[in-house]
Design a protein around this nucleic acid. Structure first.
Lengths: 211, 211
DNA sequence: AACTCAACCTACTCACGAGTAGAGAATATT
DNA sequence: AATATTCTCTACTCGTGAGTAGGTTGAGTT
């Protein structure tokens, strides 16, 4: 799109072109999946929204199942990054968990993050499910670890880490269902307000929150 | 099934019979919807699980859409009852909200409650959606009211009631996704532990929880 | 005995949508 | 210029599953 570029594309540019088209398909698909549901979205619909035909989609992606899997992986990828970021952070376990939760909430208000919550995992074929579940398991485990580190260093109340992680994840996951991406409310603000509320639930009793 | 009953059934018994069969269809259907997903469940499957044929299902219920709507309504009905119960309770707004949340969580671990969360609302036809949404709206509004009453009487922290209700509902809704109905953990215990954690999030700062 | 009606069946129709065959245009390669 | 490769299309196939037509059985009614 740079106006000064030569009309003759290099091999590298062509790869980028292809990747860009592939991504455009995924983006269009995930938005339709989120709006109408996976099963109610036909690939003809997705193609039409891009002004192309269904076989063109198959030129860039294997089949509908793979399209969904890619969308889900793009969502989960962002959560893995949030984990990685939280891991490198200084401060107490409490601080790291809070930061992680804020990122987590923001991902849930992104197209691909929303898809992870809105699309039931049974929509995947049995072939794709294991790969998806593996990544999910990793994220769950990482979150539990963050909690347990906080409990160990005394910055998080000694609760059942399993139940706590489900409670926190559930509250944040739910934003994928109610948040309107076209609304004007700031995503970061929503995230931090919710995490504030939730954080009171795992603040140790002997160390009340600031306020 | 009473061994002393006459083999000749009264008209009333026949109506009961019919209702029982209808309910059996709904129960079988909802369990399959929850296990495999709505779209992945064919009515032939449901019929087979009951040892009957698909037309028999149509003898008791109009169509697949209506079956889903009935299942969802059975779930929402239980939530409406939880609202009604909380309304009649004595005590502060905080107390009423906590009781409501506990019931809410338990419903989410019931077959029909699970279905409300696990089945995307887009699975309903556009004809059925409005009715479903109306009931949901009522429940949401009631929850917000409970929160606002608590804020008004000072027993609940002065937070954004909209965001607080989404946070609480989301955390509890999520049990519908992770809780294993065949597991041994007590539903009431899960509910009260989660509500305890969440309640810390809306306890006023100047009145710390017991402990 | 003749009739009615609920309950249940087998055996269809029919629409929809995933995925494909095969061709044509555009672009790159020799 | 000839050839290969990429990209995209139109026009199919084909399986699946919702919903229906129409018949059988058997209990209750007149």
């Amino acid at each position: 799109m740079t106006s000064t570029s030569s009309p003759f594309r290099t091999a590298e540019q062509k790869l980028e072109d292809r990747a860009a088209k592939r991504n455009a398909v995924l983006r269009a698909a995930v938005q339709m999946f989120n709006a109408r549901g996976f099963h109610a979205t036909s690939l003809d619909d997705v193609a039409a929204s891009l002004g192309i035909s269904k076989p063109t989609i198959y030129h860039y992606l294997g089949n509908k199942d793979q399209i969904l899997l890619e969308c889900l992986k793009l969502g989960l990828q962002q959560l893995l990054e949030a984990v990685a970021q939280a891991r490198t952070l200084p401060g107490s376990g409490f601080d790291r968990l809070v930061r992680f939760l804020e990122c987590y909430a923001e991902v849930m208000m992104d197209d691909f993050g929303r898809c992870v919550i809105r699309t039931p995992q049974e929509s995947l074929t049995p072939q794709s499910l294991p790969e998806y579940r593996d990544i999910k398991r990793k994220i769950d485990a990482a979150m539990r670890e963050l909690i347990e580190e906080g409990i160990a260093d005394g910055s998080i109340a000694a609760l059942d880490s399993r139940l706590l992680s489900f409670t926190l994840a559930g509250a944040l996951n739910w934003t994928a269902r109610w948040h309107n991406p076209d609304g004007e409310q700031d995503v970061g603000e929503i995230a931090s307000t919710m995490v504030d509320i939730l954080a009171n639930g795992f603040t140790p009793a002997n160390r009340p929150p600031p306020g």
